[in-house]
Write a protein that binds this DNA or RNA. Sequence first.
DNA 1: CTTCGCCGGTGATCTGGTCACAGACCGACT
DNA 2: AGTCGGTCTGTGACCAGATCACCGGCGAAG
Lengths: 214, 214
Amino acid sequence: MGWAAASLPGLGPEDAARLDALPVHILPRGARVFGPGETPQGFAMVLSGRIEVSLTGPSGREILLYAVEPGQSCIQTTLGLLGDEPYSGEALCVTDTRVAVIPAPLFHALMARSEAFRGFVFRALASRMNDMTALLERVAFTRVEARLAAALLDLGGTGAVAATHAELAARIGSAREVVSRRLEAMAKRGLVATDRGRVELRDPAALKRLAEAQ
Amino acid sequence: MGWAAASLPGLGPEDAARLDALPVHILPRGARVFGPGETPQGFAMVLSGRIEVSLTGPSGREILLYAVEPGQSCIQTTLGLLGDEPYSGEALCVTDTRVAVIPAPLFHALMARSEAFRGFVFRALASRMNDMTALLERVAFTRVEARLAAALLDLGGTGAVAATHAELAARIGSAREVVSRRLEAMAKRGLVATDRGRVELRDPAALKRLAEAQ
DNA sequence: CTTCGCCGGTGATCTGGTCACAGACCGACT
DNA sequence: AGTCGGTCTGTGACCAGATCACCGGCGAAG
């Protein structure tokens, strides 16, 4: 069974076959999928790997918007296709990634004839919109320590996380120094232990409580 | 000509007639259109008036996500219809508002058969998604003074704005005291003059520069 | 004209962001 | 082994912003 039938239950067999026949692009770790202001020319589905979309402020500070994982579509391409607004985020592959690109004409044809395809696209959009709202809520209303704890759990629920303070800061939209100090404070309380480029989670339960606080 | 043909150019005449025949709901100023966790049962189009969607944090702090104006659809209902995720924002009418609600079955039928309708829905989604991204960027990366200046210009580009400090704070996701102090500082520089429940814009050009800074 | 609620002002205190460094560690190269 | 450049982390000082606890002022309802 190809990827199409697996990712898009309910899709007609001939449409699935057509999708499975599309060329698959292989993007190496670190590749830039799109940058600010670009308009994509097809609808991209991630087959394997992971793409992270983040926003960079004028000062160079960054924040992770969301990640695209296997079976998900890169929503920016979707919006670009029909909304024709350019996008301000930047998408990078965190691992080697395989991507199938549905050309615009086929995308529109599928939207017209397949209920299942429309449902997939909409659910993807709805879920991203929710992600964005949740992120905005966290950035606007919760303190750095809670976001940091959440990021640590998200990255390596078990044991340890391989990330520098700068990377963690970019993920949660804060500054490197702040992450350093928060980690130090958390270490003092026995929640984590730090080492160059590595954070060991000593008390995941307490971290979880912290992540959910206010 | 009814609202449907005006808002949805390219829609077939019989579909437009069907939409125009839908009942129109009248919501008074201050009415709550939906609250956190609710799932809508139709696709809502604003015909006149203005609906504002905002997010409230646990501490009671608020932030305006976006406004829905005539000819626009309330995107939350769109997402609820196919993505079936509940939503965390709250939508309130800022003025008396007339809304047409397209029932779910008709919505799906239109999505299936009308290219124009799909285009409209997608463009609406894309534009909201961009709004949200831009908002996130501003909240994460720009200082309160810039956001405040932008809010003032947005509210009353000309002359004066009728809003309390608390309302302005809710709009930009800050705190009342902070807005008070920023306004005082801006008044000292001659950018605005304040009065109870009112802010007079003395130097819109300078405010604009401030709003666009960093 | 008084009372109650909303509106705005203020100081203290805490968190977070920015700047400017200073070590510390690492890998590569000689 | 030594050293050299780059990256990672720690630190102090300072500013912006959020929160808390108040207070005085205004205005509309009674």
